[in-house]
């Protein structure tokens, strides 16, 4: 790499990660004042784990993320299979577009439309509505990840299994699913982090008793930033970072199978 490219990349990384780095560093600040360094300490992490409402919100977030990622994982995989397997059926392009559109839709609009829908059909807002909302926008992401793997899958593998007497169900569970499993898992993890990160949509569709971690943090920040928030954010960054790493590792492994 040339000196210029090295410098450019370095600057880009600083631009991207400096704010996060500051946040992480200040989460270990002993001082109560966010902007004044008072020495290294993990006291805010202790405070954090003693903060009942915050822990409750984290558990809500975790529950919502797991459930919505599971739903999106199944729906997204099925959608990708349908689009990949049925060749060029009528309206295939339109279906593909419809599936991917929620990914680029402004979150405010997704949140508002879901809120209107839930109010319209009389669904009580709470954890269930957040799960549905998150599954809705994450399905497209799963479909993209799984679809890419399916495109690279040798169709003759499934034909060979059928040729050897395997029923369509045995072909799917014995051949197709194991071969696309890494991408399904990657899609699930992606959906999981998207749900964990989301503030806007959750704010629209949540109800009393269903406060997610980002919602809780945001409402606290409005009263002023304190080191405890930094600590909570640092833990969240670590969680999301680990999950994304796992997802990209799974996606990179795809070449090995086939």
């Amino acid at each position: 790499m040339s000196a210029f490219a090295r410098t450019a990349l370095g600057l880009a990384l600083v631009f991207l990660y400096a704010p996060i780095l500051v946040l992480v560093v200040y989460s270990f600040n002993d001082s109560k004042l966010v902007t004044v360094w008072g020495g290294f300490s993990t006291r805010w992490y202790a405070v954090l784990f003693a903060d009942g409402p915050l822990i409750a919100a984290a558990l809500v977030s975790l529950k919502v993320a797991l459930l919505s990622a599971a739903i999106a994982g199944v729906l997204g995989t099925l959608a990708a299979l349908a689009l990949d397997r049925h060749g060029r059926f009528r309206g295939r392009g339109a279906y593909t577009g419809l599936l991917y559109a929620p990914m680029v839709m402004p979150e405010v609009i997704t949140g508002l439309s879901l809120l209107l829908l839930f109010v319209g059909i009389g669904l009580d807002r709470g954890i269930a509505t957040i799960v549905i909302a998150h599954a809705t926008f994450a399905t497209g992401f799963v479909a993209v990840v799984v679809g890419a793997r399916l495109k690279g899958l040798d169709r003759s593998l499934e034909e060979a299994a059928a040729d050897l007497g395997a029923s369509p169900a045995r072909v799917f569970f014995g051949i197709t699913l194991p071969l696309i499993a890494p991408s399904v898992a990657a899609g699930f993890l992606l959906a999981f982090t998207l749900s964990l990160d989301d503030l806007v949509i959750a704010s629209f569709v949540s109800g009393p008793g269903a406060t997610t971690l980002p919602m809780r943090l945001y409402s606290q920040v409005r009263l002023g930033v304190n080191p405890e928030i930094n600590a909570a954010s640092t833990l969240m960054i670590a969680t999301v970072g680990l999950v994304v790493l796992a997802a990209s590792w799974l996606t990179a492994r795809r070449g090995q199978g086939a």
Partner: peptide, 20 residues
């Protein structure tokens, strides 16, 4: 008849061996 009910078998050009 669907392929899995036909008493013929095929050897594929790519061999199509199950990698897993």
């Amino acid at each position: 008849l669907p392929p899995h009910r036909r008493p013929v078998n095929m050897m594929f050009q790519s061999y199509a061996l199950f990698p897993h």
